[in-house]
C-alpha cells in the first residue's frame, strides 16, 4: 500500500495562510490504514487547525470530509458541494489523491497535507517499511521475493557491496542488507544459482526514467470515444 506521513502543522498552516474557509479531505484507503489521512486524522487535523488559527488571532473555518478513495472520480464527485464552498482544500490523500481533486476541480485550490513516503507494508503495528519502487519490471522471481531495487541503498543487481556487515546496511544499522536477506533466503531454498549469473544493466525505461507512465487496456475501456 501507499504509506504517507502528515506534514508538520506549521507547513500546512503556511499552505492555507491566505484562505478563510478550509476543507480537509481524508481518504479511506491506503492513508487510513497507515494512520496518516483517514477520517480520524482528518478530524484531528481540522480540530488542530481550528485551535491553532484561533490562537493566532485569525480563526479559520475548517471543516472535514472523508471519501472512500480520492483516486477515483466517482468518490470525489460526491463532495462537489463541500469543495465549491471553500477557499482551499487540504487533501490528506497521497499524491494521487491531491492531484485527482485538483484535476477534477480546476478552480479549486488544492494543497497536500501529507508527504507521500513510499510503497510498503506495516511490518508491525506502527512500523512501515518500503518494499517496492514500482520500477515496472519485476525481478522478485530472481531474488527470493526480496527486492534489491527497493531495499538496497544502491539498487545493486549482482550482490552486496562491501558495506554489508553482520546483516545490516552500511548506511543505517536499522536497515537490513537486502542482499544478505536474498542470500539467506536463496541459500535456505537451495536456489543460490539464481544469483550466480551476471544480471545485465536494468532497463529503467519502464521506471520513472522513461517518463510518466500510462497503461491502457482496450478490453476494459467503456468511454464511447474509446470504442471507435
Amino acid at each position: 500500500m501507499i504509506v504517507a506521513e502528515q506534514k508538520p502543522l506549521e507547513e500546512i498552516k503556511s499552505l492555507i495562510a491566505d484562505a478563510e474557509k478550509v476543507l480537509v479531505v481524508g481518504c479511506g484507503t491506503c492513508v487510513t490504514v497507515c494512520f496518516a489521512g483517514g477520517e480520524k486524522e482528518a478530524g484531528i487535523l481540522a480540530s488542530s487547525l481550528r485551535m491553532s488559527t484561533k490562537l493566532d488571532g485569525a480563526p479559520k473555518e475548517v471543516t472535514q470530509v472523508t471519501v472512500q478513495r480520492q483516486c477515483e472520480w466517482e468518490y470525489i464527485d460526491a463532495i462537489k458541494d463541500q469543495i465549491n464552498d471553500v477557499d482551499i482544500v487540504v487533501s490528506l490523500g497521497c499524491g494521487i489523491g491531491v492531484q485527482a481533486i485538483a484535476e477534477r476541480y480546476p478552480k479549486a485550490v488544492v494543497v497536500p497535507g501529507l508527504n507521500t513516503s513510499f510503497l510498503g507494508l506495516p511490518t508491525e503495528q506502527g512500523v512501515w517499511e518500503e518494499r517496492c519502487v514500482a520500477c515496472g519490471e519485476c525481478i522478485l522471481g530472481l531474488t527470493g521475493g526480496i527486492c534489491p531495487i527497493a531495499r538496497c541503498a544502491k539498487q545493486l543487481l549482482n550482490g552486496p557491496c562491501g558495506g554489508s556487515q553482520n546483516g545490516v546496511c552500511e548506511i543505517n544499522p536499522d536497515t537490513p542488507c537486502a542482499w544478505q536477506l536474498i542470500y539467506d533466503k536463496l541459500a535456505s531454498q537451495n536456489r543460490l544459482h539464481l544469483i550466480m549469473d551476471i544480471q545485465p544493466p536494468k532497463n529503467w525505461s519502464t521506471s520513472r526514467d522513461g517518463g510518466p507512465r500510462k497503461i491502457t487496456r482496450e478490453d476494459l475501456r467503456l468511454a464511447a470515444e474509446a470504442s471507435e
Binding site: G159, N166, M196, I198
Partner: peptide, 13 residues
C-alpha cells in the same frame, strides 16, 4: 564483507 560465504562468488562474477 558479509555474507562471507558469498564473497568469493561475487569475485567470480
Amino acid at each position: 564483507g558479509d555474507p562471507f560465504e558469498f564473497r568469493p562468488y561475487r569475485l567470480a562474477k
